[in-house]
Every structure is written in C-alpha cells, then in structure tokens.
Design a protein around this nucleic acid. Structure first.
Lengths: 187, 187
DNA sequence: TAGTCGTCCCTAATAGCATTAGGCAACTAA
DNA sequence: TTAGTTGCCTAATGCTATTAGGGACGACTA
C-alpha cells in the first residue's frame, strides 16, 4: 500500500499530541495507527511495544519541560526566577496534560538524563537564595513536590470545593515558598 | 456452581487489596473475578463496570485516609499536628500504593463527600497556626500539594538521583512548612 | 412437604486491544 | 534490469470488557 514514511520520532510526536487530546492512558497503538492510516502491526517496525512508546513520550515531555524551564530562568534569580520557573512548569502541564502525565510513568527506565536535566534546572532556580547543601537538595525536593502536587491536584479537580480562586492560591503558594527559601529553618 | 457470596463491598475491598499488590492500573474485572474463583461476567451483577469499580476503590481509600488523618490529629496542634498528619498521609500512601493511586482518579464523579472530609481534615491541621481566610485556604492547598507531590514523586522514583536520604528531606520539608505557616507572608 | 420465585453464577457471543509471524510489493542500489 | 532491503499488509493468538440469556440453588409460601 501507500508508504507513509513513519519513523519513531514521528510516532512519538503523534503519540504526545494524541495524549494531550484524549489522555495519556488512552494512547493506544491502535489509535496511533489509525491516525497514520495504517494497521497497528505496522508500528511495531518502529517501536518495541506500548511501554516503549510511552517512555519515548515521557522523554520527549521531560525535554520540552526542561527547555521551557531553562528559558524561563534565563536572566532571572531570586523570587523572579522562582515564579518564572513555577509558572513555566504549571503552564506546560496545563497546555499539555497528556505529555505532563507521561512524565509520571515509572522513571526507572527513563534515566537517560532527561530527569537529571530537570533536577539541575530546579537547582539553578535556587540561585539567589544561597542555600548550602544538604538544604539545597531538600529545598529542590520540596519545590518540585509542591509544583507537581499543585498541578496534579488542580488537574484532577482537587481544588474545586472552595470558591477561592485557584490562581490566587497558586500565587500565594509561590509567595510562601519564596518566604521559606529566604528564611530556611536551621536544622 | 458454588455460591461465593459476592457483594459490592467485598469486591471493592478485594479490588483495593489487589491494587496494592499489582498496581491500580492493573486492577481488572478479570483478575478480580479470578481471585473470587468466578467468571468475569458474574461481577457485573454487583458493579456497573470497571469505572464504577475504580471509583468505589477511590472512595474507600479516601475514607481510610481521612480516618488515619483524623486519628493522627487527635489531641495535637501546631507542628505536632502537622507532622503527625503528614506522616499519616505519607505512610498510608506507602503501605497502600494501589489505594493511594486510586484517590487520584478524576474526582469529578467522586464528590460524595469523601474529598470534602479530607479537605476539612487538612483544615483542622491548621489549629494552632491561627491563619485568617483566605490564607487558610491557600495554606491548605499548599500543604496538600506538597504532601501529594512528595509522595507521588517518591513513589515514581523522582528522588533517586541524589544520595541525600529521602527521609531526611521529608523531615526538613516539614520543618520548612511549619516555619512558613508560623510566619505566613502578608499579601 | 411441595411448589414458586428470585438471586447468583454460568455459558456464549461480540468487540477492542497488544503482539507476533510470514507475505508481498515498493523503493534502492548494483 | 535485477537483487535486496524495507514497510506495510493479512492472519492468528490471547487478553480484556461487556451484554444476553440459561440453569440451579436457596428461601419463602401454601
């Protein structure tokens, strides 16, 4: 039949787009094949299996997220950097819910450096707060947790019970994080 | 054949146990039926479909989590309450990863009050910090985000790159949260 | 005690998904 | 032009969810 010109990269990008549309969990080899107008079996020449596909999407998303974070951080420090980073993170998750969900797959198989870059990025964010180790590591973990947790709960509808604007709470949460970083408690 | 005495409640509990063993995503009607020694079709007399089953597990888990939190909070306030609550939350997630994962299903269909109780619990945690509204709501959201984010990233292996003990970072994160609650930044 | 009825589980069927094996045709290079 | 590789196909297996209809068991009833 018609040769469509499928590559692993095109599949990964298409899978990522599909994830954003219909949800990461619903990304299926069959659905992906339909999008390319080919039979499911055709894709196995390019990907190992569904798990492989999911991991490729995760790596793609982590790279994109790191790019956004790096751009947001450029030329800023202190609270400016914190807010820019946090908003880049949250905006990415909102624009690309499927891609973001992909980043939460078991990362055991992903440590191709995609996560490392992410971690270094968060660390760079702490420029201007002047935290010694190991407090820096603790702060990085706390920040990452808070960002991920907020985005995750927001997406799943965890904040819908109270009238208080989710935006306002986000902003105040960043204020609080800034405050605690500037005044990190002694061990 | 043999009447096994299946009820929706027994199914839900079994599904929750199964989720803890093999992962929430792998809880299937077929696997659940196997556990009871019956055919998959038999379960449809008790549950509507898989989605229904998942939601029941989510409601169960949210109730159990709220129970733990309430017990942890009893008779405490201030940092004691914060630490007890946070540890109860995290311990539950570690002991029951499948149940915990269930709580993250789209909560749209779950608002049977299970989530509301959870939210009130977190609010009760703030006794002793004396925060006025709307700061209290913001703080509740921040705390919940941090707890969920930490547990979630820990489970998925997000903290494995640095040698720093995950326990130590958790403890310091709680210190930081206590500090920021005692000294909540002005708007 | 015998009959009736509803509940519970079964079999059978349809349909979607993942995955592998083997075939054929199209593009590529000698 | 021909040989070979590559890309997509068909076919098959086995898992999953879900619905429809049947039979047996247990409980109530006369």
């Amino acid at each position: 039949m018609a040769r469509v010109g499928i590559t692993a990269e095109r599949l990964t990008r298409a899978a990522a787009d599909l994830a954003d549309e219909i949800g990461f969990q619903n990304v299926t080899v069959s659905a992906l094949a339909r999008g390319f107008g080919v039979k499911p079996a055709a894709l196995y020449a390019h990907i190992k299996d569904v798990q492989d596909l999911r991991i490729r999407v995760a790596v793609l998303a982590l790279a994109e997220l790191a790019d956004r974070a790096a751009a947001a951080l450029a030329g800023r420090d202190g609270k400016d950097a914190l807010v820019a980073f946090a908003n880049a993170y949250r905006d990415y998750a909102k624009e690309h819910p499927g891609r973001y969900a992909a980043t939460q797959v078991e990362l055991e198989m992903v440590d191709t450096g995609a996560g490392i870059r992410h971690s270094e990025m968060t660390r760079a964010l702490l420029r201007g707060y002047d935290l010694p180790e190991p407090d820096q590591t603790d702060a990085v973990r706390m920040l990452h947790s808070t960002f991920h947790g907020y985005v995750s709960l927001e997406r799943v509808g965890g904040f819908r019970r109270h009238p208080r604007e989710v935006e306002a709470s986000w902003s105040r949460t960043l204020d609080a994080l800034d405050a605690v970083l500037r005044n990190w408690p002694p061990a």
